[in-house]
Design a protein around this nucleic acid. Structure first.
Length: 423
RNA sequence: GGAGAGAUGGCUGAGUGGUCGAAAGCGGCGCUUUGCUAAAGCGUUGUAGGAGUAAAAUCCUACCGGGGGUUCGAAUCCCCCUCUCUCCGCCA
């Protein structure tokens, strides 16, 4: 959510943000709603002030005296008015709040103009795409693939997109997770193992509700949501809290399985490990001082990149353009790994600065020493990293002539062998 | 799952219909005293929204777990919900 003050003081900024993100929003309607709401609020508050004043007068009057009874009669009318107007105020307030939630975060000045994913800027490319395995095929076509990653049985037991990982398949997943967590720990992120179900309040604070309700798995009868990313429980850890300024930045990482219904996805995007309904991911989270959030974004990106570098996977960094930025982000980098068999880039991490947008909704603040007043923190997050797509790239890029897959040096001690075999 | 108790400010804890944003203590901050520390004395100390201002000052309103109700008036009375604690049962 945006700071309501910015609508009133600098509506042009919001207009420009909507344009840069290529969103169709009736901003004038929001402005009109804001004006109407404030006018009605003033009316109601004026009447309440009268009630309070009368209350003090009546407190010193003798109960049952003529003056007292006259006052009761007078105030009955005021109370009726307040009640009537409060109903209007409440409904107007709900509309106002909904309208406020429809306004996107303002993109940073360094975000490039553009509407489509093609207009994202390639910020950097690492590793030689050409040098990747020449015999690579799409990972699901590697002979014996199904013995390690069994989609058919997963579909039988649960549904499409819920694969079993078996043998070396299970082992490589565990190795990657352990590697990610260890590396992130060395980079200064405190490891957290969060709940993987969250309540509606948490899902609302991070923006999954109400916009993306259909994307989450919901449980009955308790109305808990299976987390689509560790970002949700992690960000909510400090919901409605005031942190010490000296504690910032707080850096944390968490592994969770992630559950996504992925309604509406189709085609080549969903083949094999490219898109599944349950996957393992390590998420990086930062709560930072507003003054340093863009420096912290660069560090976060570097931390995620280092993981790909240590795995010796070719990747590129995209700086997302305004149109592809996402509603809540001010600035975002995507890390895409090269999958040599499919000959395409797969997104494995999305590193974003939300500035105060999430923090306002979740009420996460710190007490500023200079003023003694609470201020909103800035939040950032990014994957570090998502397992299935990293695994897909690993399989496709490192496939050997003998049908085995070479394990990157950094991962050997975790996996326990130098090669992964399909059986 | 059953029974009971409870939820008040940073913390402890008073307050059962009116002058209560809320006693008292602790903590925090400031000043005084002091060789330093400690201690003592005095003062001060919540959050949010709105109005106002160049910015302040200032004014108004809301907030005693959450939501509804009764009333001229609710921290206080009624209803619903959530959470915490204790006991019993069950169980990895």
């Amino acid at each position: 959510m945006l700071d309501p003050k910015i609508l009133r003081e600098s509506p042009g900024t919001v207009r420009a943000a909507i344009a840069k993100k290529h969103l169709a929003i009736d901003f004038d309607g929001v402005l009109a709603l804001d004006t109407a709401w404030r006018a009605l609020l003033t009316e109601v508050e004026g009447r309440r002030a009268r009630q309070k004043a009368a209350n003090s007068e009546m407190a010193v009057l003798k109960k049952g005296s003529p003056e007292f009874l006259a006052k009761v009669q007078e105030m009955k009318a005021v109370a009726a008015e307040v009640k009537a107007k409060e109903e209007g105020l409440k409904s107007l307030e709900e509309k106002w709040h909904t309208a406020m939630l429809s306004l996107p975060n303002i993109p940073h000045a360094s975000v490039p103009e553009g509407k489509t994913p093609e207009q994202n800027k390639v910020h950097a490319t690492h590793g030689a795409v050409d040098a990747a395995s020449q015999l690579a095929v799409a990972h699901w076509e590697i002979p014996g693939f199904a013995s390690l990653i069994d989609f058919a049985r997963g579909a039988k037991v649960t549904g499409a997109g819920f694969p079993f990982f078996v043998g070396d398949g299970a082992r490589i997943v565990r190795a990657l997770l352990q590697f990610f967590l260890d590396e992130n720990g060395k980079a200064g992120y405190t490891e957290v193992s969060p709940p993987i179900f969250v309540n509606a309040a948490s899902a609302t604070a991070t923006g999954q509700l109400p916009d993306k309700e259909g994307q989450m798995y919901e449980t009955t009868p308790d109305r808990l949501y299976a987390v689509p990313t560790a970002e949700v429980p992690l960000t909510n850890f400090f919901r409605d809290e005031i942190l010490d300024e000296e504690a910032l930045p707080v850096c944390r990482c968490a592994y969770t399985p992630c559950f996504r219904r992925e309604a509406g996805s189709y085609g080549k995007d969903v083949r094999g490990l490219n898109r599944v309904h349950q996957f393992d991911k390590v998420e990086l989270l930062k709560w930072v001082h507003p003054a340093s959030s863009y420096d912290e974004l660069e560090r976060l990106r570097a931390d995620a990149e280092r993981l790909l570098q240590k795995l010796e996977l070719p990747y590129r960094v995209l700086l997302m353009c305004g149109g592809d930025l996402g509603f809540a982000q001010s600035k975002k980098y995507d890390l895409e790994v090269w999958a040599a068999g499919q000959k395409r880039w797969l997104e494995v991490s999305s590193c974003s600065n939300f500035e105060a947008f999430q923090a306002r909704r979740a009420q996460i603040r710190f007490r500023a020493k200079s003023t003694g007043k609470p201020e909103l923190v800035h939040t950032l997050n990014g994957s570090g990293l998502a397992v299935p797509r990293v695994l897909a790239a690993l399989l496709e890029n490192n496939l050997q002539a003998d049908g085995r897959v070479k394990i990157p040096a950094a991962l050997v001690s975790y996996f326990g062998r130098e090669y992964l075999s399909f059986k």
